[in-house]
Computed example of a mutant assay.
Amino acid sequence: MMEISRPTFNFAEGEVLLIDKPLRWTSFDVIRKIRSAMKPLNVKVGHAGTLDPLATGLLIVCTGKFTKRIDEFQAQEKEYTGTITLGATTPSYDLERDIDQRFDISGITDEQIRKMATAFVGKIEQVPPAHSAVKMDGERVYEKARRGETVEVKPRTVHIHAFEILNIDLPNVEFRVVCSKGTYIRSLAHDFGKALDNGAHLSCLRRTKSGNFHVGQAWQVADLVKYIKDFTFAASDEDIQKS
Rank of each mutant, 00 (worst) to 15 (best):
T90E: 04
F120W: 04
T89V: 09
V158R: 01
A195N: 13
N167M: 01
L166W: 01
E152C: 03
F120N: 03
A88V: 07
Q126M: 10
A117C: 14
Y142P: 05
E143K: 15
G82S: 03
C179I: 04
A117N: 12
I165V: 14
T89F: 06
A117E: 13
E164Y: 01
L166M: 07
R140E: 13
Y93R: 00
C179D: 01
D137L: 02
V151G: 01
V141K: 01
I124N: 07
K144Y: 14
T81I: 15
T118A: 09
A133E: 11
P91E: 10
K194N: 07
H159R: 06
A133F: 10
R146F: 02
D169P: 08
N172H: 10
D104L: 03
R186G: 02
F175C: 05
K194A: 13
I99H: 04
P91Q: 09
G193P: 09
P128K: 03
I113T: 08
T109H: 04
L86R: 10
A119N: 10
T109I: 04
N172R: 11
I124T: 05
L95T: 14
K194M: 10
I99L: 02
T85V: 15
G107V: 06
Q112S: 07
I99G: 06
L196V: 02
V178W: 05
K115C: 09
I84R: 04
E139T: 15
T90K: 05
